[in-house]
Amino acid sequence: MTGQPIIFITGTGTDVGKTFVAKLLVYGWKCNYWKPIQTGIESDCGDTFTMINYPIGKWVTEAFQPTYQLIKPLSPLEAMEYEQESVDIKLEDFKVPHGSEQLPLIIEGAGGVCVPITKKLELTTDLITHLATSTQRPFYVVVVADSGLGTLNHTLLTWDYLERNIPKKNLLGCILNGKKNGRNRKILEQFGVTIVAEIPVCKNDEMSLDVTNNLPSLESVTNIHRS
């Protein structure tokens, strides 16, 4: 594997802060950004718009347009049913964007690891495998999880599913989002979950910028993983 790494961001569920954490990584690690499937555009400008128009600090990211943008805020499989024109998402439709090679690339998935995205009932993990095997760049998966009560079950289930469905070399670790919880971190680590970082609650842009400046470097995280 050669070239700048690709980091696929997924989550343990809804509202765990996946997009927010992806944004912190984009600006903290100075990455390009791509969300292959965007749903819910009837009521939301979309994560790509947010990533470009609400930066953290002075650095400017390049955000590549989604391959699919769907109206309803549903899983891609369900959202396809509400499009005015027939839509049939296929894994082969997705290619790592040309022009993203010069910097690391953050890819943000739609929902969690078992969200259905095609009419063949292929899941997010199938998209991960497709993208990982279609590029020569190092490819990693990061799970975003809430740091608080209930995260143990959700995170361990997600981690176990990923370990059974993608190569271990691609599974980088987990980022805990929210108020620091040393007990939850310790238990997750006892079960073999790698904690990449803990993201505190950020109430304003100044706090977000401080977090990006204090993230572990992408190089250090991937080096530890390779070792």
Score class of each variant (00 low, 15 high):
M1V: 10
M1S: 15
Q4Y: 00
I6P: 04
T12D: 05
T12G: 02
T12A: 02
G13K: 08
K18W: 05
T19W: 04
K23R: 15
K23C: 02
L24A: 03
W29E: 04
K30Q: 15
C31A: 13
N32G: 12
Y33C: 03
P36V: 01
I37V: 14
T39A: 02
T39P: 11
G40R: 02
D47M: 00
T48Q: 07
F49Q: 12
T50G: 03
N53L: 03
Y54Q: 14
Y54V: 00
P55Y: 07
P55A: 06
K58I: 00
K58D: 15
W59R: 07
T61K: 08
E62C: 09
A63P: 06
A63W: 07
F64K: 12
P66T: 11
T67Q: 13
L70R: 09
I71G: 13
I71D: 03
S75W: 06
P76T: 10
P76S: 01
A79L: 06
M80D: 04
E81S: 15
Y82E: 08
V87H: 10
V87T: 04
I89G: 00
K90A: 04
K90R: 15
L91K: 13
E92Q: 14
D93R: 06
V96Y: 06
H98F: 09
E101G: 10
E101R: 01
I107E: 10
G112E: 09
V113G: 03
P116M: 08
I117D: 07
T118Q: 12
T118Y: 10
K120W: 01
L121S: 13
E122T: 09
T125Y: 14
D126F: 01
D126E: 11
T129R: 15
L131N: 12
L131S: 08
T133V: 08
Q136R: 13
Q136D: 15
Q136M: 08
Y140E: 13
V141N: 00
V142R: 01
A145C: 12
A145V: 05
D146W: 00
S147V: 09
S147Q: 11
G148L: 05
G148V: 11
G148I: 11
T151L: 00
L152Y: 04
N153A: 02
N153D: 03
T158K: 03
W159E: 02
K168I: 04
N170C: 13
L171C: 01
L171V: 02
L171N: 01
L172K: 04
G173H: 09
C174K: 09
C174L: 06
C174S: 10
I175G: 03
G178K: 05
K179S: 01
K180D: 13
K186V: 00
K186T: 10
K186D: 15
E189G: 05
E189L: 07
I195L: 04
E198H: 10
C202R: 03
K203R: 14
N204P: 09
N204L: 05
D205Y: 01
E206I: 14
M207N: 00
M207T: 12
D210E: 14
D210S: 14
N213R: 13
S217C: 05
E219I: 02
S220G: 00
T222W: 05
T222P: 08
N223Y: 04
H225C: 02
